[in-house]
């Protein structure tokens, strides 16, 4: 998209591409449950399964943005439920700083999101995906950090 073009004019027909890093033990199982329960949610999300939200290096997120995805969601177990005891708690600090720096640099709030979803929360999973997709849709295509060559 050219600079200066408004989001509205190009929104027609545009669908965001979103990458979701889901932890194997909770959020991925939550996504499974949503599937088994035949819950509807937008198809914009591509799932990458990781062992733990603590495995998600900020590189993954930045590289996704650089390659032109419109949004990233990272989801793990609720605090206290981590399969690796405290992987998500260490990750939580990392993500807090990461998100703050990202937004400080001028990346739109909502471009990169985080959630806790347990294996039992199929309903919640579909709800979160709906919300995230809607929010990223409203932001328009991702442009910050995108590398065009």
């Amino acid at each position: 998209m050219k600079e200066g073009q408004t989001v509205d004019t190009e929104k027609a027909g545009w669908e965001p591409r979103i990458i979701a890093f889901l932890c194997n033990w909770c959020s991925y199982a939550g996504a499974d449950l949503a599937g088994i329960s035949r819950l509807q949610y937008p198809p914009n999300v591509r799932v990458i399964r990781v062992p733990c939200s603590g495995r998600v290096n900020p590189y993954f997120i930045i590289k996704s943005l650089q390659h032109g995805v419109d949004g990233v969601l990272v989801s793990g177990c609720h605090p206290g439920d981590c399969h690796y005891i405290n992987g998500n708690l260490v990750a939580r600090r990392r993500f807090a700083i990461f998100k703050s720096i990202l937004e400080f640099m001028g990346v739109e709030k909502g471009r990169v999101q985080f959630s806790w979803i347990s294996a039992a929360e199929g309903e919640r999973f579909s709800q979160v995906i709906k919300e995230v997709t809607e929010e990223i849709k409203a932001l328009g295509p991702g442009k910050r950090f995108v590398k065009e060559i």
């Binding site: 650089q66 032109g68 065009e148 060559i149």
Partner: peptide, 9 residues
Amino acid sequence: DEKVDSGGQ
């Protein structure tokens, strides 16, 4: 070599 989705150089 540098690459992104759309191609490389």
